[in-house]
Design a binder for these strands. Structure first.
Lengths: 279, 279
DNA sequence: GAGTGGTCTAGACCACTGT
DNA sequence: CAGTGGTCTAGACCACTCC
């Protein structure tokens, strides 16, 4: 029997199949949404076992090129639009905190959460108080075991019922203790957001640092997010500092990378004019 | 014969195996670097076929928890340190462009490329001129078919011989035509970087926008980067604007997410003092 | 009911690693 | 050399979708 390995080319059967299909996707012969050959079909076409054809198709799934619709077939992935989450919102949220209450409410309903309209989201919040772990203590620059207010948010797209974002925020409890209203998750959504909450306890955020990386979701996360395989999770930690450089809050969020684009804007100081220059 | 599917639990054999191992990794029973059971070993232990054990292990690879060392076994992944690439460098690079030539050179050798020391990198550059595709024309706000200077860089860690970053930059050729030296890749590395190159043709970058997302690498990319499976690629597009809001350059880069952390700093304007406030 | 992917089995040969 | 992962085969039953 013709067993494994190469015949005329140097590649494996699997990589020949993935290569062929990848090419067809890239040159448009298989456009977004196009139905791919089924597993048995591919197996016949390339004279390989179904398992081999399947492996090839799964490779394309892991690359994010192909989506499987269980028991219906595989299609070329239609990349969803990426929602932009811009660092502009940091300043906008801060500005909003100074508006009178009714305006805070209005604006907050139109625009919130790092650039997504609240009309397109359903929020759920849960507060509790925890003890700082080593990692959190280091990140917040507090002692191990310090009491932290932990706030978890989940936002959902009401149309698709899909998760849009989850985030967890940590604030040293001592910073917000003076206003008990801040400890009550029943007050969510707080008009004016976190910046206004902090304002009520005399804290002004002066600098925000966003730390971004990515990783693959666990199977549980992939399921919760309804992420097709082959889509990473963007991992963002936002760290908020006050004027003294004190760490006030850290917030960890995850976003499916196929639906999210992060945007960061860095204004640069002008060059000195020739007269000012020293060289 | 005991065939597929559940026996007493509701899960598949595969998910039972991945679940068990995942738990052991998370609670530290299997620490970083620990050798996992081999495929035949797992198959015996769970009384499944080797293929099933294999599938389970590959699931963990895709989650980035486990690394396979071909023909030697699988180990719990040792997460590499993430190199920080900070948006601070944007301003620093701009400042450097104004230094006298010898200082530009020195500083450029110590610090370059978004926060990595040049001592730890080997660079290769390739320039050519291309015609703007639709996507590039839109991004650069120029007409379709405009001539663009394309510059590709590859940086390599000389110790490990592994890729550190690849990037491609596009500049409308008309903007840099007045200095032919800028069209010659032989002048790389240019002391003072792109900011200084642009300075020689009278262009000052005033704002940089970084757009970040992530995707899985293609198999070719994974091979080139020597990325273990289960590691996404951070995709960054940097867009540089001058004082008139004109798009000067776009630069696309990819970084392996397990070795990279992006950091963006957003200073916030202070709240108006009570006297300045209008409410 | 035909077709699809989801899961699984029980073999096989190979190239390579370690001792 | 025995052991490992890499690849592949030729079956199988299942749950589900689509017509």
């Amino acid at each position: 029997m013709a067993n494994q390995a190469a015949t005329m080319t140097n590649q494996t059967a699997t990589s020949r199949i993935t290569g062929d299909i990848r090419k067809k996707i890239q040159n448009g012969e298989l456009g977004p949404g196009a139905l791919l050959p089924s597993e048995p079909e591919l197996a016949r076409e390339y004279a390989v076992s179904r398992q081999t054809a399947r492996t090839a198709l799964q490779t394309l799934e892991r690359e994010g090129l192909v989506t499987v619709r269980a028991r219906r077939g595989r299609i070329v992935r239609v990349p969803p639009r990426r929602a932009v989450r811009s660092s502009d919102r940091h300043q906008e949220e801060k500005d909003r905190a100074m508006l009178p209450a009714h305006e805070r409410k209005e604006v907050g309903e139109a625009e919130t959460n790092f650039g997504m309209s609240i009309a397109d989201q359903q929020f759920a919040a849960a507060y509790d108080v925890i003890i700082a772990t080593e990692e959190l203590a280091r990140a917040l620059n507090v002692d191990l075991g310090t009491a932290l207010l932990r706030r978890k948010w989940v936002s959902t797209d009401p149309k698709t019922e899909r998760l849009l974002s989850t985030s967890v925020s940590y604030i040293p409890k001592s910073l917000v203790d003076s206003n008990p209203a801040l400890l009550d998750q029943g007050n969510e959504p707080w008009p004016g957001g976190t910046m206004h909450q902090l304002f009520t306890v005399g804290i002004e955020i002066m600098r925000i640092v966003d730390e971004v990386t990515a990783r693959m979701p666990t199977s549980a996360e992939a399921q919760a997010w309804e992420m097709p395989s082959g889509i990473p999770l963007l991992i963002c930690r936002r760290i908020s500092f006050d004027a003294d450089g004190r760490t006030i809050e850290i917030s960890d969020a995850g976003y499916p990378a196929d639906r999210t684009q992060l945007r960061f804007i860095t204004p640069l100081k002008p060059w000195p004019t020739p007269a000012e220059r020293i060289d």
